[in-house]
Amino acid sequence: MDHQQDKSGVIQLVSAMVLSGTIGIFVTEAHQEAFNVVFFRCLFGAICLTAFCLIKGYLKLSYFTKKTTLLIALGGVCIVFNWVFLFKSYGLTSITMGTVLYHTQPFYVVLLGIPLFKERVSPSKILWICLAFVGMVFVTNLQSGDLKGAYVEGVLYSLAAAFLYGIATIVAKRLKGIPPHLIALCQITLGMALLYPFTTLQAVPLAGNHWFWLAGLGLIHTCIMYILMYSAFQKLDTAKIAVLSFIYPAVAMFIDFILYGTRLTPFQGLGVTLIFLSSIAVNRNWNFAFVGQKKAAVP
């Protein structure tokens, strides 16, 4: 039974990560401002998740206290603006660049845990994080003297998106006992209200294939993907989740190359490797052999 659950969880998470890897295409092909894209993602996603939560019986007021409501709201602010910044980065850099830099998010979770929860970080984790940021410099080619302002802006947007997602992750860990699908529904519903003042909905044509891409972001990447992902999270251990999560950027980079011809230099490829390796290492608590670690007491 456990083996079957594990197998089912792997299939669900792989499917979710493959879907995640196609987000950049939908955002790019919608040809809309980032605020408009996220607004419609929230709208179509809310419609689908409302139906799902109704069927599952998740729509209960008993889940909400003053504390949980505030945490859900905080997480919602971070989630929707994380999407806005990430989607902005696609247009200013590339899907590949935005996605790779977005995957510095695990390091922000670790770093934020130090001042917020007084968590102790091992010397090995500090070294892995430093190695990842060296990789970030390689990937972004920041050592180049001919960087354009728009490119640097895109890099900063993707890093800001990763930082906000790190905060949202910390908030989500403190929301115990509430169905994650209901949390997501509340957050994207709040997102529509937050984003509306920044949108230019009057500029969105009433007819056109952009509606296919916008509706897809809501149905596929917010409803179906989240259902698969959260179901998998309940069945798999953290280490397996951390490794399988790298299917997302791998698919995104492959599709960006096939459809838009985005290529990385060998130097940037080394940077990608450093970021991904460091992220897995931080999630799996890998230690450097030359760094002294405290040995567990033997009873």
Score class of each variant (00 low, 15 high):
D2K: 09
H3N: 06
I11R: 08
A16K: 00
A16T: 05
V27D: 06
E29W: 06
A30T: 04
E33C: 03
F35H: 14
F39Q: 14
K60H: 08
A73H: 13
G76A: 15
V77H: 04
V80E: 09
V80R: 15
F81A: 07
F85P: 01
L86A: 11
F87R: 07
F87I: 09
I95P: 01
T99S: 10
L112E: 01
G113P: 02
G113M: 05
K125H: 13
C130T: 15
A132S: 15
V139F: 12
N141I: 05
L142Q: 14
L142N: 08
G145V: 02
D146N: 02
L147C: 05
L147Y: 07
G149W: 06
G149D: 03
E153Q: 14
S158H: 00
A162Q: 06
Y165E: 05
I167L: 05
T169W: 15
I170R: 02
A172H: 11
L185W: 02
T199Y: 12
Q202I: 15
N209R: 08
H210E: 12
L214H: 06
G218Q: 09
L219S: 15
I220E: 04
Y226I: 05
A232R: 00
S245G: 03
D256W: 01
F257Y: 13
L270T: 11
S279L: 07
A281E: 14
R284V: 15
Q293N: 06
